[in-house]
């Protein structure tokens, strides 16, 4: 293993939760460090190796002009660029600014809003550069991250199902909380990957993993209405961590009295 692949981890507008998933791989961390050279990962080490990098894991969304340039530099230095997490794949919770006037927010939050230089929108990496793979979640799932790294190292296709959370829920035998208790749940339109954690604890799915492949959000939204969820609440359900993912954005726009 003379030429271990070089891995870099990059952060844009985000909470660090996704990249910390890599550190959270406690039992596997030594094996990871054994198989790859962690060349740039400030959360783990101050030692930074120069690029180019075989693989870049990129967390966060693009919210400033400076970040947009920085992302382009990351792209240039990276063989494979993998977007990790809801911010990097959909713009994250901060994409709620896309539905409002960002200046009104900065005026409200900062004592000197004139110092704030920010874009009008929060956008996923794919809006700016070519992305080779997206790993969903808020945060990403540790097992999926290891699966992707392992697949890359072994030159095989990563196993990352694109179907609904319901499939994971049923496979673990969790009784359906929407059918049995009337609890609103976004599982039927949400991308698998978390292992259906929330329904197992009697909570509706929050759609942290964003839209599944070709989701039928309109049918689910109609049913949520029938369950008694108010129209503005339906909009709120779709406007969370993946508010700006195209399928959720469109569905959210249809509720709550317009965008």
């Amino acid at each position: 293993m003379a030429d271990k692949p070089k891995l870099a981890v990059w952060k844009f507008a985000s909470c660090d939760g996704c990249q910390l998933t890599l550190l959270d791989c406690e039992d596997e961390l030594l094996a990871v460090a054994d198989a790859i050279t962690i060349a740039n990962f400030p959360e783990a080490s101050r030692a930074v190796l120069d690029g180019p990098y075989d693989v870049s894991l990129v967390e966060g969304s693009i919210t400033t002009a400076h970040d947009r340039e920085r992302l382009e530099a990351v792209r240039e230095q990276s063989g494979l660029l993998i977007a990790i997490g809801a911010c990097a794949t959909a713009g994250g919770i901060q994409a709620l600014r896309n539905f409002a006037d960002v200046r009104a927010f900065t005026d409200m939050v900062y004592a000197h809003p004139e110092y704030i230089s920010t874009l009008e929108t929060s956008t996923p990496l794919s809006a700016h550069v070519r992305v080779d793979m997206e790993l969903r979640g808020c945060p990403i799932n540790k097992a999926q991250l290891l699966e992707v790294v392992s697949a890359l190292l072994n030159g095989r296709k990563p196993n990352v199902p694109q179907g609904s959370v319901c499939i994971e829920c049923k496979m673990r035998g969790t009784p359906c909380i929407m059918v049995a208790h009337g609890t609103p749940c976004l599982g039927p339109v949400t991308h698998a990957g978390c292992g259906a954690i929330c329904p197992a604890y009697n909570r509706g799915c929050y759609a942290c993993f964003g839209p599944m492949e070709r989701p039928n959000t309109a049918s689910l939204a109609h049913h949520l209405g029938a369950l008694g969820v108010a129209d503005d609440a339906v909009q709120r359900l779709f406007r969370t961590y993946n508010a700006s993912a195209p399928e959720f954005r469109r569905e959210g726009d249809r509720h709550g009295g317009g965008a």
Partner: peptide
């Protein structure tokens, strides 16, 4: 229009 293709 109605089916969610969720697989349930």
């Amino acid at each position: 229009r109605r089916c969610l293709a969720c697989g349930n």
